[in-house]
Design a protein around this nucleic acid. Sequence first.
DNA 1: TGTGATTTAATCGTGTACGATTTATATCAA
DNA 2: TTGATATAAATCGTACACGATTAAATCACA
Lengths: 151, 151
Amino acid sequence: MQHNTQKVDELLCFSLYAAANAMNRVYQPLLENLQLTYPQYLVLVALWEKDGVSVSHVGSRIGLESNTLTPLLQRMEAAGLLRRSRSTQDERQVIISLSAKGRQLQKKTKDIPSCILHATGLSLSDAHQLRNKLSSLRTSLANDRDTTDSS
Amino acid sequence: MQHNTQKVDELLCFSLYAAANAMNRVYQPLLENLQLTYPQYLVLVALWEKDGVSVSHVGSRIGLESNTLTPLLQRMEAAGLLRRSRSTQDERQVIISLSAKGRQLQKKTKDIPSCILHATGLSLSDAHQLRNKLSSLRTSLANDRDTTDSS
DNA sequence: TGTGATTTAATCGTGTACGATTTATATCAA
DNA sequence: TTGATATAAATCGTACACGATTAAATCACA
């Protein structure tokens, strides 16, 4: 087993990129009858956990900014899943609130977690360990970007 | 620490999705002066390893199909990085060959691996372990999809 | 040897992602 | 109070991703 630096870049980025795309492809058929895309599902999961929050709050949860989230949330509003309204305290912010339809969708997703766990081929504790590693990787990568930027 | 199934889905998919996006954002400034996007860089890395292969061969390496690869490769051809030509043995296949420019680009990427490793905050051996886990995750997810499809 | 099934790319429409910029609102300092 | 700065979303243009479909070449096999 070679541990040269050259290959780490290539293989870590390949595997992360390919695994994320593969995960998307597993979710897609599970979300199809709910008329949801994978990022839209992530937004709903975040809102089921905490509702009535700003666009940037949703964004910090799933790692997206308004340039991606705004059109995504507009599509979800058009689908009747949520409402978007300016905050009265701070009119710069747009508050995202689940509709009854958006809230009810949670029930219909109850079988998804076990499907996904099965698809990963991981044990519950291995999945948790991997999640922790990926969370800390995300943090490191985001911090590196903050440190390196030319502001 | 709860190990309930409900949260695995949410947190594994969140962390994988967010980490992959974060990785993309770290690569982007490193590739900017080379006029490359992150997926284009992955294609080049695959070609540096093995050149003169079909579209689907490149696709199997990075986990994409022709619907995504064809326009991507067309842009890279327009940028003078590679050539696309029908195989004479099997005219269904399009063979991708690096140009001199595409080959020379490899030298200019030599510092990227160490930048990425630094950004991950991981040791070399931790990075390798994570790569192995993600590779096997990708395999499991892809196999699950093959098994589940309604053909 | 022909013909139906399979394989390989390409095409098309929709929905992300992202950097750069813009607009509106809020905050802070002199 | 006002002007300078900061913050929150939105907008815009480019480039992925993907399911579904199409077109052309090859294969299988009766």
